[in-house]
Design a protein around this nucleic acid. Sequence first.
DNA 1: CCAACCGGGGTCTGCCATAGTA
DNA 2: TACTATGGCAGACCCCGGTTGG
Length: 392
Amino acid sequence: MIMASRNVWYIRSNFLFGSRCWMIRYSAEIFLKSISCRPFNVKCDNKNTQPLKNEDLLNNLLTMGVDIDMAKRRQPGVFNRVVTNEQHLKMFLLSKGASDKMIGSIISRYPRAITRTPESLSKRWGLWRKIMTSDLEIVNILERSPESFFRSNNNLNLENNIKFLSSVGLTHKCLCRLLTSAPRTFANTLKLNKQMIEFLQQVCLSLGHNSPTDFVRKIISKNPSILIQSTKRVNRNIEFLQSTFNLNKEELLLLICGPGAGLLDLSNDYAKKTYKNIKEKLGSLGCTDEDIQKFVLSYPNMIFLSEKKFNDKIDFLIEEKISISQIIKNPRIMDSSINTLKTRIKELVHAGYDLSTSNIALLSWCQKRYKVKLEKLNGLKSAGGLLQCNDT
DNA sequence: CCAACCGGGGTCTGCCATAGTA
DNA sequence: TACTATGGCAGACCCCGGTTGG
């Protein structure tokens, strides 16, 4: 019932506020006050005075746990609006399983959410539900990234995006993953998404691959965030890979739709910067350019590491008497956090494992395997200790 | 049984600038 | 001209385990 009356009200207010004329707005507010669909304290005396704050809106938001300062800082315009739908939004999200706290946080971070009409909101939700299997999954995405859902009000565009992405050969499962990990993709204009897909297809063809569809599918499944990058950024990263490593077309193709797919997201010259650092660092430790190239290519994700993290890890390993040649032979070791490295080295040394002569690969094994190995080593050590009757 | 090799999975928002719109 | 919609940017790993060959 509330819904119904609000719908009517909205149509009416759209009609009334569609005009550019301030005078008409002013009379409209008087009119609204008089019919008291929702009392307003907004006053627009003339062009020189700001509308006074809408106390109802502020009260509503405060009760909902919205951080008003944050919201105002982010989208001040929302607070000058005569019509907002925060109560409906709240009821709607509650009905989908969101908590009060989530709702407060969502509106604080993306206030424009409260300007969406009930019809538009439920339509949009329905479109997302075409991809996601439950409301709760959507709620979780919204909590993470309210902007992705609310930034655009263009449901037709959203619908077209879903159609387009399906037509490109993305499976339902893939769309689901896209929406989960890069929800902004669906708020992009269709034009922008098309641009990126066409760009990728072009790259594919220029590298001599004969199935752009397969290529695009592969690259998106390896890197679901690719559609929220600019083609400029992706292009620069491909150029970087091409110019830095001596790869033929086929190798480059395999790299960018395989282990190097993630690198395409890196911000301007980040890869260039970190690779330069890797080269300098390893070069100073006596590695040849060829060694370094091979090392990085066998685990390209290490380019993600900030200069400091990379250097800290190398320094730490060297301090622990692990030679650079051991490191070069085990690129995966850069995969482990420095904390993991520290803990494991300590445990291994304690267990009597000599890292300078033994295999260091276990520093980057998964927890489960590593634990089994460590227990075994400790068992050996205590057995040896018992035999010699002198262990501490 | 062991370990080398290799691929997979999660995940990426929150802010700013600006053209367009009413 | 206030406000909206949209493009674009910076930022910066860690862990798990299947398969396979010895």
